[in-house]
Amino acid sequence: MSVATVLQRCRDEGRAALVGYLPVGFPTVPGSIEAMRALVESGADIVEIGVPYSDPVMDGPVIQDAAVRALAGGVRVRDAFTAARAVVDSGAAALVMTYWNPVLHHGVESFAAELAAAGGAGLITPDLIPDEASEWIAAARRHDLDTVFLVAPSSTPERLATVAKACRGFVYATAVMGVTGARATVGEAAEDLVARTRAVTDLPVCVGLGVSTGDQAAELSRFADGVIVGSALVRCLGSAPSEAEGLTRLRTLATELADGVRRGRA
């Protein structure tokens, strides 16, 4: 399922999409896939499947710790393809979010081919800017995959145009300057960035970084095409005394967020 189809459907319903991030392999590979299914059942439209990486410079402590645990548990890059298949089968679009070296080491062309074969929609690449991405963009176009790059509050109009031009699917707007992790407020800089991004592209713009509550999701959904939530969901799994309790907490939060993206424009 393509991201464009999902975002169009949400737009037709007069709401923003809920995009939920979970790393594959946390707490275990089957446990993470179970959690992704729960996320979709609770209302996520798109699942971002995180590939745990040893040096995640864009991530705060919650996702760093999850990556450490997933890697210690033996997660492999190829597990992201298994997760993508499971997400698609449960009815959502699957985007893989990965730092660049695991893709590069796997082989860009074979990564694209395997992701496409698993039904994945494309990649979000937090440390790959379009200037360095020609090989990936070419492979993605060959395999009909989305290429989601990030823009930030620091992005100049020239950079916004460069990045948006390389994107397919949507443009990922980081709401704040910083790494992943829940924050008390996320609105102001995000709204400005979304407006500046819309000035240079017709692509949907989804907002992430720092979002953790239904109210924040509602606030962002007033002006964003999608609301991206990561650390807050991961924390549900990481802080729970058991896997079952983790899933319960995850469903509760995802339901709250799904409600948020539905009432923001009401």
Partner: peptide, 10 residues
């Protein structure tokens, strides 16, 4: 090259 988050490019 320059393999960094977009936020650092400026």
């Amino acid at each position: 090259g320059r393999y960094v988050p977009e936020a650092l490019v400026p």
